[in-house]
Amino acid sequence: MAVQEEINLATIIDLQKHPINDDHYREKCKVELDKSGVLVLDNFLYEGSIKSILSEAKKQENLAYYCVNEHNVYLNPFDKNLSKNHPRNKTVTSSKGCITDDQVPKKSSLRALYNSLKFKDFLCDVLDETVLYKYDDNLSSINIHFAKEGQELGWHFDNSSFAITLLIQKPKAGGQFEYIRQFRNSNIKDNNYDGVLNLLNGNCIPEKLTMENGTLVLFRGKDAIHRVTPTIGDRTRILSVLAYNSRPDVSLSESARMTFFGKLY
């Protein structure tokens, strides 16, 4: 079983460029993530793997649930005790399509990557986690996001301590990942309202990531505010989110499943 997994992994990941089993490589990745809050691994998957995953995504795109959400950057309920112009209550827009874990083919290279023990072991070392678990519901572990022309992900902080994404298809233009590190301190409940207001008024210059197809990104977004700018052109931006938990038996809340997936099961 373990041998078979290694064979499969070696056909998916470019292990020459990204030797995820090597302790020195893992330490190098961890240092970079700890230093800058983001780890960008270009050409993580072989071109053939990405083409296969892209073909699967396009075949399933008609199943995607599209939604437009108005939310604040904190992804929390609005505070009625504050004005509509307060940063806690100012709204941004997120719009995308999404297919859920149960719609990803069982034999997909994407699922093989997600389930790989070696891949999860690599992630644990880099993220400083003891163990990683899939979501307990059948929708949330692997998601594929589709952003057609004009669709975007508005400014926000993540609720989770880390995010893992794989770019499957870049758009012709737009779809730029932008972020500002250490923009709040959630540990002491400092929400940096003044900084957020400046950002929403266009007075801050964020950092930008350049990504090609097959790029794996590990990102700490709990205190780093970030967004994806609107897609420009007729080529859909397609991105997979690989979602894990540090505890077993965790499901995404029913309200979140209805909001993002349009269904509970």
Rank of each mutant, 00 (worst) to 15 (best):
N81C: 01
Y114W: 07
S140R: 03
N76H: 11
D121N: 15
P230G: 03
K120C: 12
I168P: 10
T100Q: 12
D249C: 07
F146P: 11
T130K: 14
D22Y: 03
L127H: 01
I232A: 06
V250H: 08
A112Q: 15
N203G: 07
P19W: 06
L218F: 09
A256L: 13
P87I: 03
I180M: 14
I164Q: 09
G221D: 07
Y133Q: 09
Y135P: 00
T93D: 01
C98E: 11
A173Q: 12
K107G: 02
H24D: 15
L113S: 04
L197S: 14
E152I: 00
L166I: 09
I7P: 01
C124D: 01
K189T: 02
D42E: 15
L127D: 03
L117K: 13
I53Y: 05
K208L: 09
I205T: 14
N191V: 00
L54R: 12
L63R: 13
E129W: 02
L41M: 14
V228Y: 01
I53M: 12
K172C: 04
H226I: 04
N89V: 06
Y66R: 15
Q151S: 00
K107Y: 10
N62L: 09
S94H: 02
L216T: 09
K189F: 05
G214M: 10
T11V: 02
L167I: 10
I7H: 05
S186N: 04
S83M: 04
I188T: 13
A256I: 11
E5W: 07
L110F: 08
I238F: 09
W155D: 00
E149Q: 14
H86T: 08
D137P: 13
S116I: 06
I99Y: 05
D102P: 03
